[in-house]
Design a protein around this nucleic acid. Structure first.
Lengths: 136, 136
DNA sequence: CTAAAGCTTGCCATTAGGGTAAAGTCAATA
DNA sequence: TATTGACTTTACCCTAATGGCAAGCTTTAG
């Protein structure tokens, strides 16, 4: 296989979009790519690895800012795994909080929906709940 | 109690911010408020009820677009509760999907974090997982 | 050689707000 | 009454992570 890919090929290989790869470069997550004489970006194996890293971190919900920190730690041979773990646990806490909030919404909404008659009637428990304010 | 409130008072009463009340007006969720001679917006009881409706719908995670539909149904005497229920169930499905995605992230991340040694060592299971690609 | 596909940059849109600034208004107090 | 502080108005810019479009250049396949 070739060792240098264009941005479209790198996108396909990493599962990211070309647009986002450019965006990550401009945001400072990635070093600026070498270019062909015509200005086309080229990606080597090392950069492909970084794209994969970013793609996987995005799938886990890390923000670009968090990924920047993770990449810096990844590149730093003197990193302490403690620092990485702290980042991950903060993110885990965020995720758990979001889950809780969504579950609360889900509960209230499910209750309202269960009381809604699903027919031609104009009476509606959902609208009544939103109007009356016993949704909290 | 007075029947006409300024935007700040209406904000306090509804739990929304004055900024957002103006935003909802501009977005077409709310009819344009009557104004004093000086141009101050004034809110009566009916509009306060609508602000409460919006605030509660936002707490349940409905988007402004969805709330627009809910308000239209609320105002329509010929509405069918079926229509409201369909909206609510679509939103419930969205919520449940988000919860699932977050739970998947949580699971993978928790596993990685559990394998991370939380010390001065430079070896780190989290970074290894992000680099290697067994996070899916 | 030509046409299609791919790349470049730059700009605009999205969601649901937050912030700031300049200028006008209202109410209470000195 | 004059001033001061709190409130309101509009208008503009900012956020996060993408998507889309357009104009123009390059590369590749036929």
């Amino acid at each position: 296989m070739r060792t240098l890919l264009t941005i479209g090929e790198a996108a396909k290989a990493s599962g990211l979009s070309a647009k986002m790869i450019r965006h990550y470069e401009q945001s400072g997550l990635l070093a600026k790519s070498p270019r062909t004489d015509a200005g086309y970006r080229l990606y080597n194996n090392q950069q492909l690895q970084q794209l994969g890293f970013i793609a996987r971190a995005r799938k886990l919900g890390f923000s670009l800012n968090e990924i920047l920190s993770l990449l810096q730690l990844w590149r730093d041979p003197a990193r302490e795994s403690r620092a990485v773990k702290r980042l991950a646990e903060q993110h885990l806490a965020d995720i758990n909080q979001k889950i809780s909030q969504l579950q609360q919404m889900q509960q209230v909404l499910q209750q309202l929906s269960d009381c809604c008659s699903d027919d031609h009637n104009s009476q509606c428990a959902i609208l009544a709940g939103l109007a009356a304010g016993n949704t909290s």
